[in-house]
Amino acid sequence: MESLSNKKKVLEQKPLSFMERMYLPAIAKGMGITISHLFKKEATIRYPEVEREFSTNFRGMHSLKRDENGKERCTACGLCALSCPAEAITMIAAERKPEEKDLYREEKYAATYEINMLRCIFCGLCEEACPKEAIYLDGPIVPADYLRKDFIYGKDKLVEAPLEMKK
């Protein structure tokens, strides 16, 4: 059939020439190529000791942010949980007591806040849904673990360190 695109090439299968049938020149050439790779720099990054540099929009582990006074921003509105396509986020809201004024920014806060890292797909929709700029996926890679229950991260692992500790 006639080719419409003119890109078709018909390959002829010629019998091997004497040099090709000897295999040795081709083998020597191939050996030269492989030995040259012995002296090239290896592409491997020794992961736990050395980490690859991430791009600026890399999405890693979540962190729950504090405001400029060190109060937790999250008000447990549940929009992140609602937006989560993997249903990885759950939380229980509680009312702030007067003496906890320095801990939480608004009257309502998340008493427990859990993200199941095995369910999370790191899409960043929680980040986009949050009206209080309380959650960001700006952490490192979530480390491996042995038990499923250990992948459910609570507030102890998610909330940013308090301001004094950061300084």
Partner: peptide, 11 residues
């Protein structure tokens, strides 16, 4: 094998 393929091999 690893070094010929620009890898590190068992370490």
């Amino acid at each position: 094998a690893a070094y010929l393929q620009d890898r590190l091999g068992p370490d």
